[in-house]
C-alpha cells in the first residue's frame, strides 16, 4: 500500500525507513502535530573549529523563497518546505555538529523519534534514525549531535554542488509510533570560492547577521553562473558517483 495522507494515521517508522526517494507530498496534515512540538533553532557547526556554518531560528528566520509563487496559492505547506544553502564545506568536513532546539506543549510527549532520509536525485544518500524518547510537558529540549562524516565520493560532491536543490530530505517525526510531523528540505551547496566571496562581503559590510543574508545572495549568484559551465561536466561525473552506491 502506498504511503499517503489518506492513511497517515497508520504510517509507521519502519515504513518510512524503507522509502527510497522523496515522497510526492506530505504524509500527514499539519494538524497531526497535536503535541505542540515546535522548532526553535537549528544550527550546523564545524566540530573542530566550532565555526557556525549555518543557523536558522526564531532570531534568524529562514528566507522563504516567494519568487515564482502565486501568492493566492500559498498554503500551509510552504512553511514545512525549507530551502537550505550551505557552503560546499559541509560535504567535506570530517566532523560536523548539528544542534536542534525544540519545545513541546503542555502534554507529555512519549517516545519521540525522528527519521530523516536524505536523497540526491531519488537515490538514498543518508538516513538518520534517532529516538529522543520522553519529553517533559512545556519543556525546551536540545539535541547536539556530532557526526564523523565518512568521506564522500568527489564525483557525487560535484554533482550535488552543480545541481542545486536536487539534494532533498524528508524528516518524519513520530510520537509513540504515530506520525505527527513531516517536513521537507532541499539543499544547495555553494562553491568554496563563492563562499569566500561571501566572507569578504561580510567583512566589508560589517554586521555578521545582516552580512550573512546579503552575502548569501551574492554567493548564490556566483554559484549559479558557475553551474552553467559545469553542467556538462556534472553529467560525466554522475555515472561514477552512482557507481559508488552500487
Amino acid at each position: 500500500m502506498a504511503l499517503s495522507t489518506s492513511n497517515w494515521r497508520s504510517i509507521t517508522p519502519e515504513q518510512v525507513l524503507k522509502l527510497t526517494k522523496p515522497t510526492a507530498g506530505f504524509l500527514c496534515p499539519l494538524s497531526a502535530n497535536t503535541y505542540g512540538i515546535e522548532y526553535l533553532d537549528f544550527s550546523i557547526l564545524d566540530y573542530s573549529s566550532k565555526n557556525v556554518i549555518f543557523n536558522v531560528g526564531r532570531d534568524n528566520p529562514p528566507s522563504i523563497d516567494l519568487s515564482g509563487v502565486d501568492l493566492a496559492d500559498i498554503d500551509e505547506n510552504l512553511y514545512r518546505s525549507i530551502k537550505y544553502e550551505f557552503s560546499e564545506d559541509v560535504l567535506r568536513l570530517p566532523s560536523i555538529q548539528t544542534t536542534l532546539v525544540f519545545c513541546v506543549g503542555e502534554r507529555e510527549v512519549p517516545g519521540f523519534r525522528m527519521v530523516e532520509r536524505h536523497y540526491f536525485r531519488d537515490q538514498l544518500v543518508k538516513s538518520f534514525d534517532f529516538t529522543f524518547g520522553f519529553c517533559i510537558p512545556s519543556s525546551t529540549n536540545t539535541w547536539d549531535a556530532v557526526y564523523s562524516v565518512p568521506p564522500m565520493d568527489e564525483g557525487l560532491i560535484n554533482d550535488m554542488i552543480n545541481n542545486p536543490h536536487e539534494t532533498k530530505s524528508d524528516s518524519f517525526y513520530f510520537v509513540d509510533g504515530q506520525l505527527v510531523m513531516h517536513n521537507k528540505a532541499s539543499y544547495k551547496y555553494v562553491r568554496e570560492d563563492a563562499a569566500q566571496a561571501k566572507k569578504s562581503y561580510e567583512e566589508r559590510y560589517g554586521s555578521k547577521r545582516t552580512g550573512a543574508a546579503g552575502g548569501a545572495k551574492a554567493a548564490s549568484k556566483f554559484a549559479d553562473e558557475e553551474d552553467i559551465g559545469q553542467k556538462a561536466l556534472a553529467k560525466q561525473h554522475r555515472s561514477s558517483a552512482f557507481a559508488a552506491f552500487a
Binding site: 519545545c103 513541546v104 534517532f130 529522543f132 519529553c135 517533559i136 512545556s138 519543556s139 525546551t140 529540549n141 536540545t142 539535541w143 547536539d144 549531535a145 556530532v146 564523523s148
Partner: peptide
C-alpha cells in the same frame, strides 16, 4: 535546563 539536552558524541 527546562527539559533535556542530549549530546551524541564520539
Amino acid at each position: 535546563t527546562l527539559g533535556f539536552n542530549i549530546n551524541t558524541l564520539e
